[in-house]
């Protein structure tokens, strides 16, 4: 199991959940699980083509997904996947 952390701005799309334990071996498959089980959240993560929305960054543990293998980054049990939206307020 890996843990996917949901940022506060998107929790309204998954009944306030802060994290999900998910059985997935890549970032892509973790998003697939979210698409099936939390459709409203998924629609705010990915566009109609399935691409991650531009203002979102995904980190696997402390590393940016783009510094690893992108959406195909492999996940090991215990890994933490964190969705970090760009923030503009101040």
């Amino acid at each position: 199991m890996v843990t996917v952390y949901v940022p506060s701005q998107l929790r309204k799309y998954c009944r306030g959940a802060t994290r999900f334990p998910i059985a997935a071996d890549t970032v892509q498959s973790a998003l697939g699980v979210l698409e099936r089980e939390h459709a409203a959240l998924y629609r705010n993560l990915c566009d109609e083509t399935g691409a991650l929305r531009g203002h979102l960054n995904v980190f696997v543990n402390a590393d940016h997904m783009r510094d690893l293998d992108g959406i195909d980054t492999t996940l090991a049990p215990g890994d933490e996947v964190t969705i970090v939206p760009a923030v503009s307020g101040g």
Binding site: G54, H55, N57, H64, A86, V87, S88, G89, G90
Partner: peptide, 28 residues
């Protein structure tokens, strides 16, 4: 930047990544 109870901080220095490296193009 901050909103709600949450926010981000990242120093942008000449020999490090910039805001655009991380955020991409300006969000809609």
């Amino acid at each position: 930047a901050a909103v709600g109870s949450y926010g981000l901080v990242m120093p942008v220095v000449p020999d490090g990544p910039c805001l655009r490296c991380v955020v991409g193009n300006m969000p809609a």
